[in-house]
Each structure stands twice: as C-alpha cells, then as structure tokens.
C-alpha cells in the first residue's frame, strides 16, 4: 500500500514562491500525471516527493508514513530522470542493478531482478553495453528498468519521454503504461505534453503558477475544466472563448446570438471546444480565415465577433477562406467561466 498525501506543501526559492499550499492525495497504484507549462512547479513538487528538494512548509506522507524528513532512499521510491542519468561508467547490467547493489542484495538476487526487468523493458540483449553505445530510446529503457528493479512502492518520472522523437514517444507511452500497470506501483509522472497526460493518466493534476488548478480524470479535465486556464491548456486546439452578456432568465447574448446558460447577472465567458461545433441554420456567424485539412477532419480558424475562434469540422465539407459559416454549439458541451475568478460556473 502506497497512498501518497501531500499536505499544505509550499516551496520558496528566496523571494520566489514556486509552490503555494499544495494539497493532493494520490491513491495506491494510481497513475497520477502532473501537467503544466514549464515553470509551473510540477518538477519542484516531484522533487519534494522524491526528497531531492525540501519543502519550505507542509508534509509528505507515503504509505501512511511521514517521509518529508527522510532521505530519498528511505522513502520507498524510485525515479526516472528527464536526461535518464544512466551512469556512463557502468554497464547496462550494473546500471539496472545499482540500487540493488546499494541495498547489498546477494549477487544471484541482483542478477535475477536485473534480468527480469531488462526482459520487461526488452533490453536483455544490451546488458553488457555502456550507455555511450545506446540510443536515446534504449537509455530511456535502462532508466525505467533501473527504477522497476527496485520494486518500489512509488515510481516518480520527470518528463521521461521528452527527449525522444515523436514516433518513439508514442510507442514508449503505451509500453510504459502497460509495464507500470503490471508492476502495481503508484506512479507520479511529470509532463508538459497534454497528449501524454491524457493517454496515460488515471488522474491529471493540472498545475499553474505553483498551484494545482484541477485534479481529476482525463475526461473530466477535458470535458469539465475547472478554470479557464485548464480549458485553454488542455485540448489541441484549445477551447474557444467568447464574452457573454446576461439577457435575463438564464438567457445569454453571445456574438449576437441568444443561448441558454446559468442564472447569473454578471457577464461571463462562454466556452466551447472546437470539435463541439456543427454547421447549422442558426448559430454563431463565423468568417473563415484559415482552413487546414488534417485528413481525418478540417481545422477551420475563423473570426466570430472579432475574436479568434476555431472549429473542427467534417473533412467532407467544402470550406474556403472568406466564407461565412453558421456554427451551432452542442448545448450540453457549452461551459461558462466567471471572468473575475476565471473559475467554471455551473
């Protein structure tokens, strides 16, 4: 059992506040992704959990044990580093066995575990090589195998796939997810890549400016973003926003159209995902600026009431620059945000 609890964790570097009062519980065997742009504090949070950084305030609990005063090796964790940190002076075998040697396990046990994890990561042919003789993808596999060989309660990963090319990244994504699911460990995975986050996570914590903005399942984060930041960060292309003014009785004026919305009297932001728009007889009048055929669908960038607006449409449609489309938002997919707090309004 390795539930992770982060209680009121804050981190300051001098006068710079890197993390503000973080509270997060990660279930046993959950795959949690910390997602955010660079500088949002996600790596700092991971390093605090690892013990490579000390929190200015707050507590870290792993498996019901307070660990924030313990050195990394006593926390039951293993880590995969962004640049792999595969030791160049040791063979792949000794790299994978490094942690086991530090625990002074007998030779045959080290051999057994190294061979098992190397098999799992498909690098059993490389055990005698040095890291200088490996490709980036192979080094990545060694780094993961080294972590898995520890049979840790928790495995921490800091942008492990960011140095791989796109094709390899996609392949490793699926493989890593499979291997980790099998190993029954709790995983925390830091990334700035939303596709990685969406495809791998049980739950995503979206971070922004040292705070967790939303922690929820990928589909929840996608469908019901808790804040404008999440709506604008997740999804490619991101959500569209338009100003909305109250027209009374739960009706709202959006770009000259009357739409149903929450009962509020202050202006809101109307938000809709590009793929939740359909050409219809009534709807938002959009002037087409750019048309990008992407094969499976058509990405149309338009202007609605002077604002940038994107729609993902069926690729069978004939749309040309300068056309005026009437786009109807799917009613159950419309979201509303309070411009004051930037938070979602039900």
């Amino acid at each position: 059992m390795a539930e992770i609890q982060i209680k009121n964790v804050a981190k300051r570097f001098g006068s710079y506040q890197a993390l503000h009062d973080i509270n997060l519980t990660i279930q046993d065997q959950e795959f949690m992704v910390l997602l955010g742009a660079s500088g949002c504090g996600k790596t700092t949070l991971l390093r605090i959990i690892a013990g490579l950084e000390t929190a200015t305030e707050g507590e870290v609990w792993i498996g019901g044990r307070r660990v924030d005063h313990l050195p990394p090796k006593d926390r039951g964790i293993a880590m995969v580093f962004q640049n792999y940190a595969v030791f160049p002076h040791l063979t792949v075998f000794e790299n994978i066995g490094f942690g086991l040697r530090m625990q002074k396990l007998p030779n045959d046990e080290v051999k057994r575990r190294v061979e098992r994890t190397a098999g799992l990561m498909h690098i059993d042919q490389l055990l005698g090589r040095y890291s200088g003789e490996l490709s980036g993808g192979q080094r990545q596999r060694v780094a993961v195998a080294r972590a898995l060989a520890m049979e840790p309660d928790v495995i921490l990963m800091d942008e492990p796939l960011s140095n791989l090319d796109a094709l390899l990244r996609m392949e490793m994504r699926a493989e890593l997810k499979g291997v980790l699911a099998e190993s029954n460990t709790t995983a925390i995975y830091v990334t700035h890549d939303q596709v990685e986050a969406m495809s791998m996570a049980d739950r995503i914590s979206v971070m922004h400016q040292g705070k967790i903005v939303q922690a929820a399942s990928p589909i929840e984060v996608y469908r019901n973003p808790a804040a404008e930041f999440v709506a604008g960060f997740i999804g490619n292309p991101p959500m569209n926003f338009l100003p909305a003014t109250p027209a009374g009785d739960g009706k709202w004026t959006v770009a000259g159209q009357i739409l149903d919305g929450p009962s509020r009297t202050t202006p809101l932001h109307f938000a809709i995902r590009p793929e939740d728009l359909r050409p219809a007889d009534t709807g938002l009048a959009a002037t087409v600026k750019v048309v990008e055929p992407l094969g499976a669908h058509l990405l149309v960038t338009c202007s609605v009431d002077g604002a940038l607006f994107r729609a993902v449409l069926d690729s069978d449609l004939t749309v040309r620059r300068g056309d005026t489309l009437t786009l109807a938002p799917q009613p159950d997919r419309v979201r509303w945000f309070d411009p004051e707090t930037t938070l979602a309004v039900a």
């Binding site: 690892a50 013990g51 490579l52 050195p71 990394p72 090796k73 964790i77 293993a78 880590m79 580093f81 962004q82 640049n83 940190a85 030791f87 160049p88 002076h89 040791l90 490094f98 942690g99 530090m102 625990q103 080294r146 520890m150």
Partner: peptide, 29 residues
C-alpha cells in the same frame, strides 16, 4: 560531472561516501 548522476545515485540509495566512490571517482578518471 552532471548533477543528475548524484541525484540518481542518492535516490537509488547511495550514501555520500558511496556517491564519492561509485560516481565521483570513476567519472573523474
């Protein structure tokens, strides 16, 4: 010597002395 090697060694259980003998010395050859 990249700092990441020391952090990796620390996470994988190497004491300061072990980090010196297993990381610093060999990489300093």
């Amino acid at each position: 010597i990249p700092k990441e090697y020391y952090e990796a060694a620390e996470v994988f259980g190497a004491s300061p002395w072990k980090r010196f003998t297993r990381i610093t010395l060999p990489l300093l050859r």
